[in-house]
Design a protein around this nucleic acid. Structure first.
Lengths: 339, 339
DNA sequence: TAATATTGCTTAATCGTTAAAGCAATCATT
DNA sequence: AATGATTGCTTTAACGATTAAGCAATATTA
């Protein structure tokens, strides 16, 4: 690959000094009193040589890379893929480039990806922190690197975060099932200490309580991410065969997908008997015989505010942190979204 | 954000010159005869200051960014999300960082994203080229920038590409339906001139022909990406109500998703009467009453070889181009994948 | 013991870009 | 005609890192 043209090459070609070329191409020709004639010559040969500025070199000077790092759990998970896409678009329109990394809910992978992004000199980060990453995150804070947590958060008010209001969303889901007449409402969540999952559980409990239903520990199942199939199988068969659950609230889209698949595997028409509510939309559900109500997270807003907050903090490091819990609503039958 | 520590800061702290620090931290301490004592001091203060090398500065010197650009159609489309994830992992393990961009099948967006990636000095590119991008691609070639086309390609042997064998895959799909006894097999594809779509159409025609079935133009529908719903509706209703199609082969996952949704909307149990085969796996289909056979593309291999080829060409610009068509197979009932 | 190696560092130059300061030549002013 | 302002450029320095070349001081060899 032959060397790419630089300012120097243009300068040589035109017969002027390098800074002059920089001024013109940087749009600061006028204020640096470059003559129109020279400016034109510079612009013309820049085009002729197919010149492209070297953003790395520029970053070195300006100490800004105009790049942000985004660490999500898994970019092939539809929820995160959508989120990624929204962040990408928003960043693009603001002149920022995004580098993604997946943590796979694994601390060590998370740390390595983070390290990589920092070496790449990202101006800031948007992070969906995995379980156990609190320590790393607090290190980040200490180093004064701007970041915004997304989807997940820590109670700590030291950090910026943008999350859905998981607690209320869960209450909505639970109360929907209660209104449908269910008494034995089960819920399946991840075996995780992440605050937003706790919120989902707590919202479920609160939903039951405010409607005078006592929580039954047998109806609360927690499964592990790394043995999803087996745990889910046990959870579902127990709930249905032993504990007489008549409704199930799945706390995430991955749980819902696996759970629904297994439910239908047990009995094709099971959704006629068991009511289900799930967290997160999934185009999947359009194919089920019965519509499955779902919690619709404000992904677009989450992405938008995360980027907005991050950039504000990049531009003004002394800004106070901001915390945002965005309302999520329950999408019920009849309101099928068509886009 | 206070300034990040640099080699200079370490040098000052330890009381040595900057290059010495560079040698030690770059693992070239021994060959540059740095004493063990000094080396240790350097490493210790590097750690103490939380030093991280500035990859941008390094790139400036080495003329290698260890970054590759990846332009896909839409990273929120499951097919591309999976591909992205595989490329990300593969690149990560090879010490490369990936910057993604979505073209949205739009030339102008494509050009802008490409321009952005080039200014970021990517070492090379993996590209799923949108319709009409041939010109841009040939410019890239002229500039000697290493790239590999993926998923889509141009006949031109000047370019590296890794694609599925769409022609044969389409034949498989068609012949499957023929074996099931169908005579009136329809196909729905995009209204696009992209070669891989042409291959899918041609494979369908060839499948019919080798089995003695004449192509019926009424059974071949093409829809537009930007008015998918309307076009699909017209296509489907015509195929079923007017043209007596008894089977439909959907040429992409997006077409399949919309098409199946509409089919089921027409009549819940329609898949009992109409046989369907689709391109690309989609977790979606697990929820259908009837299993839908699908063409399983070798996404993993595509990502792997794309990266391998790209890096070989980055390291050796004079290498001959390589073209690869990977076999895709038909996943039939009973072989339900469970991972 | 004088020439030669080796050790352990430093200095200088460079990558592509930007920002500040400097300096002739021309123009305007009274 | 002498002074000051403007025009149109150049020179210098810096960002953080790497690489080659240089140079004392000490150690080794004949």
């Amino acid at each position: 690959m032959k060397k790419k043209p630089s300012l120097k090459d243009i300068a040589k070609e035109v017969g002027v000094s390098v800074p002059l070329v920089s001024y013109v191409l940087g749009g600061k020709g006028k204020e640096n009193r470059v003559s129109d004639k020279t400016a034109k010559k510079i612009r013309d040969t820049a085009k002729a040589l197919n010149y492209r500025p070297n953003l790395n070199a520029r970053s070195l000077k300006t100490n800004r890379t105009k790049t942000i790092g985004v660490i999500l759990a898994d970019i092939s998970n539809p929820f995160f893929a959508n989120l990624a896409r929204i962040i990408e678009d928003e960043a693009f329109s603001l002149g920022y480039t995004v580098i993604f990394g997946s943590s796979d809910e694994n601390i060590r992978k998370f740390d390595r990806v983070l390290e990589l992004l920092l070496t790449r000199q990202v101006d800031g980060l948007i992070i969906a922190p995995p379980e156990g990453s609190k320590n790393t995150i607090s290190q980040l804070k200490k180093q004064n690197i701007p970041f915004v947590l997304i989807d997940r958060y820590f109670q700590d008010l030291d950090y910026n975060y943008i999350v859905a209001d998981n607690f209320n969303a869960s209450m909505l889901a639970t109360e929907y099932l209660i209104k449908k007449g269910h008494k034995r409402i089960a819920t399946i969540g991840y075996n995780s200490s992440l605050a937003h999952y706790q919120d989902r559980y707590n919202g479920y409990v609160e939903g039951l309580k405010t409607n005078g239903i006592e929580e039954d520990a047998n109806l609360v199942k927690r499964v592990s991410n790394n043995k999803l199939k087996a745990d889910m199988h046990e959870a579902i068969t127990h709930l249905i065969n032993v504990n007489n659950a008549t409704a199930i609230y799945f706390q995430t889209n991955t749980l819902a997908e696996e759970g629904l698949r297994q439910l239908i595997g047990l009995e094709k028409d099971i959704l006629a008997k068991i009511d289900v509510v799930v967290f997160d939309q999934n185009s999947t559900y359009h194919f089920l015989q019965n519509f499955v109500p779902y919690i619709d997270q404000p992904i677009k807003k989450m992405g938008y505010y995360a980027l907005k907050t991050l950039i504000e903090h990049i531009n003004n490091p002394d800004l106070n942190t901001s915390q945002l819990k965005l309302p999520a609503h329950l999408e019920e039958e009849g309101m099928r979204k068509n886009n």
